[in-house]
Design a protein around this nucleic acid. Structure first.
Lengths: 357, 357
DNA sequence: CTGAAAGCGCTTACAG
DNA sequence: CTGAAAGCGCTTACAG
């Protein structure tokens, strides 16, 4: 009954697994197994251990657990930016899901920078994360090597492999086969194509594609736009406005002004992200250019405020919260040694037609 | 020279402190002390240890270190929301500073909810954080008790104590005195008052204060607004529009419409946050209400896009990135056992006058 | 199904 | 200033 804890010179006041074992009258090994829900423990003992541990207010020490098991309860999530709400939504959804399952989320911001990504990955790997969420499928060879070598389960966010390679069933049944890369997202190319087709269906003929940042997913949207225009023989390279600078409302305004000044007879502009499109809408107000009458404007992602713009912005709604949650769920399966039934999960997208087009 | 590591059944491939000790021909204790920059180590040995450790690519195991020292390299940061860019800026600046000093940032989102905050705090405390950053000075008794009992150094963000109690020097010199609460921010009340005075100086007479969320800092801005109006005998309780709902662009639009419909002769509206004010500006466009001619609109925080609005938004620029960085710096001092020279750091604010007023 | 024992990789009194 | 030893609080082969 009494804890009877040996008072050594380095004792912390903490209630330990040993205390629980003594109080429950079993060995520490049994407590450890019972607490982690390992089978092969007498159900009666499990119940006793759980009740005693609860009564004592026992909380396992994550550091001790990590040291002994060589695995922490950390999950690393690597995102490009915090200034695009898209990634904040992703982060929040993933974190909520992971936390409910008892995992700690550690966030790293790569700034779309390969060497920052590698550096962050190295740092995180030293903490032996239990799992990993990483934005995109495009990574440096070093990053890929580090991830593969680490043996840490990983799910990629917001993107899917270009072509869907269905895994042959016999390979899957072997169990040893790698079904990866695991990813949850949607087809960026298709989304770019769909928005372009929407504009075409409204009778637009000269549709500009205006983009900043130029990360791989933006470039896929560009491909979709090209494909749709080429199918109608409306493709013209001068309709491409690609700016590698960081995306922002202000840049959207600047690009809009440039496009309206230099391009002839443009009747629609498809921006690769809503912040650019919102900035363009505000610049149009400033410049007295009527949207959509003089020029239609479309965006991408349906970010906060796009429905509040004047006129409200036509855009592509992307399932980022769902991606965050589903990816976390998939990672949870992987961390528990299970095999996700769908290694590549396509969550789709929706064209949201508002008054800016 | 040769590692000569005992090959036991649980060996991980990892290079350990022991390996470094062998290779450097010193004891593990010395390596440990040298690596952590403890004084009382022969400089020559320090150099040797550092060089060997570097050559071997040794990386200390955070879990082992945490277990042995009862202190991790985690710093917890608790913020109310991720949907207000204010807090994202805070987070990013703090994380950057902390990371450069070798600390991991763990973020918790409280949603302005007392019990969520307590729950997060409890979870975080089990990880023995080395330090803590927490938004605001207003916390439940439970939260305060948990924090005090934990003995984890803590810096509060974005707020300062109502009255500045200068610490008597003799108390400070005693060393044992508590100079806390440590905080970095600015005077919310003063900022609310300053913006109101700015509007008054432009000849506005009936100035509405429109707020959502109603967290403690918003209520302080309200106090500042009241003070400024009362000083001019212009205070009228019907000018207060307080909505406890979450702040958003859409809500700003709704509130603006309500205010314009029900209040008489309002000539200015001071919104407690830029997202509300931006929403109001957009609603004004929709409704055909001229800003600032029919009504002036002001916001708070100078968030992304406020300078891009039409008309550009008059607002209060708050030093959130600086707060994040300075708070992290102060926490770093505390974690190293030093005493910050200024326990309460006031970073001020600026009135940014644009065309919406 | 259960337990005794060793071990994870560090830090830190303690003794010199 | 340096080192041998104990200890942090868990997990996990191994033996029964």
């Amino acid at each position: 009954m009494s804890p009877n804890r040996p008072k050594n010179h380095r004792s912390t006041g903490r209630i330990t697994l040993n205390d629980v074992a003594h109080a429950a009258g079993v060995s520490p090994s049994t407590v450890s197994r019972a607490l982690r829900g390992e089978r092969a423990v007498d159900p009666e003992l499990v119940e006793r251990v759980l009740s005693v541990s609860d009564k004592l207010g026992y909380v396992p020490d994550p550091a001790a657990r990590a040291l002994a098991s060589q695995r922490s309860d950390h999950v690393t999530i690597l995102i490009p930016l915090l200034s695009n709400t898209l990634f904040v939504d992703l982060l929040e959804a993933a974190q909520r899901t992971l936390r409910a399952a008892g995992f700690q989320t550690l966030m790293g911001v790569t700034h779309y920078n390969t060497s920052e990504e590698e550096q962050l990955l190295r740092e995180q790997l030293h903490h032996r994360p239990a799992g990993m969420l990483i934005t995109g499928l495009d990574h440096s060879p070093t990053t890929q090597k580090l991830m593969a070598r680490s043996n840490v389960p990983c799910v990629h966010l917001m993107d899917l492999p270009e072509v869907n390679h269905p895994i042959p069933p016999d390979v899957l049944e072997g169990g040893a086969a790698d079904a990866g890369p695991y990813c949850v997202g949607f087809r960026q190319t298709d989304a770019g194509e769909a928005m372009t087709q929407h504009l075409l269906s409204q009778g637009k003929q000269r549709i500009v594609f205006a983009a900043a940042q130029l990360d791989p997913r933006v470039m896929q949207r560009l491909q979709g736009w090209r494909k749709a225009l080429k199918a109608q023989n409306l493709y013209d390279p001068t309709l491409e406005w690609l700016n590698p600078a960081a995306s922002s409302l202000a840049l959207g305004g600047v690009m809009f002004e440039q496009i309206m000044k230099q391009s002839q007879a443009v009747d629609a502009i498809f921006f690769c992200n809503d912040d650019l499109a919102q900035g363009a809408l505000l610049a149009a107000l400033r410049l007295g250019i009527a949207v959509p009458h003089q020029v239609a404007i479309a965006g991408f992602n349906d970010l906060t405020g796009s429905d509040q713009m004047w006129p409200p912005l036509t855009t592509v709604r992307t399932p980022r919260a769902q991606v965050g949650e589903a990816a976390a769920q998939m990672l949870l399966q992987l961390m528990h040694g299970e095999t996700p039934d769908q290694p590549q999960l396509d969550l789709g997208f929706h064209i949201i037609a508002r008054q800016s087009t």
